[in-house]
Design a binder for these strands. Structure first.
Length: 230
DNA sequence: AAATCACTATAAGTCAGGCT
DNA sequence: AGCCTGACTTATAGTGATTT
């Protein structure tokens, strides 16, 4: 980002790389494209990035005109993509499509993280395909530690809340299985039907919710990209 | 809520010396 | 000359506490 250690080339690919190719930067942009606008929202989607570095990257992205920053009087800082930032969408999706197409899926499935998966699912859930009443779906990963085992998605008025403590509502549907299976489903590597048939996933509760889960559980944006490698 | 700071760890770059 | 090695330097990233 600093003049002195740039690539020293006038080629536009080099110029774009100066802005986007430092560690974490493309993932920060991805979080913006997924709708995050606040520091702690960004952190949630980038759990292994240190806040100091996130702060630094945000300054750099502001400097290069990818985002704008507005600080309100109550101390809340709001980050928004600029038009230039929004135009990075096809590039970031292109990167993801490339990896989905060419990289072996077992490499992705080495990087399992329940909180990240649940956070992503929260975002992609299709609330229009769920009942209009309040709806609570519990996900249970029996192999994980107590702190990571249980997750609840509470859908109400088209909004989705994620908790990893019992919100106290009646559970409409319990989804139980390995984190690996659930991640593979979300990435489009397998289907709910395949996993329930193989008994690596179990659905208990509301029959209609269970039947339609493949429809309301929005998948990763890359789930439909055809793969060249298994 | 959103940093900022002081500190530590690691990676990357530079360069001299030795070997064939 | 060309290549490798290892010591040293510098830049970058991570941690955890603290601040506004």
């Amino acid at each position: 980002m600093v003049e002195r250690d740039g690539y020293g080339q006038f080629c536009p690919v080099s110029m774009a790389s100066e802005i986007l190719c430092s560690r974490w930067t493309t993932l920060v942009v991805r979080e913006f494209l997924c709708g995050s606008t606040r520091f702690n929202e960004l952190r949630r989607g980038l759990p292994k990035m240190s806040p100091a570095l996130l702060s630094k990257r945000l300054k750099e992205l502001e400097q290069s005109g990818v985002i704008t920053v507005t600080r309100s009087a109550n101390g809340i800082t709001d980050y928004q993509l600029t038009a230039a930032g929004e135009e990075l969408r096809p590039l970031i999706i292109g990167l993801g499509n490339w990896a989905q197409r060419w990289m072996e899926s077992r490499l992705s499935l080495k990087n399992l993280d329940p909180s990240l998966l649940m956070w992503d699912m929260r975002r992609s859930l299709d609330t229009r395909r769920l009942p209009t009443r309040r709806c609570t779906i519990q996900f249970l990963y029996p192999e994980l530690s107590a702190a990571q085992k249980s997750w609840w998605l509470v859908v109400e008025d088209g909004k989705v809340d994620l908790c990893n403590f019992d919100p106290g509502y009646d559970v409409d549907l319990l989804v139980e299985g390995s984190l690996r299976s659930m991640t593979a489903i979300w990435m489009g590597l397998t289907t709910i039907r395949q996993e329930t048939d193989a008994e690596t996933l179990k659905l208990e509760g509301d029959r209609v919710l269970a039947r339609d889960m493949q429809e309301w559980l929005g998948l990763s944006v890359f789930a439909k990209t055809p793969r060249m490698r298994a």
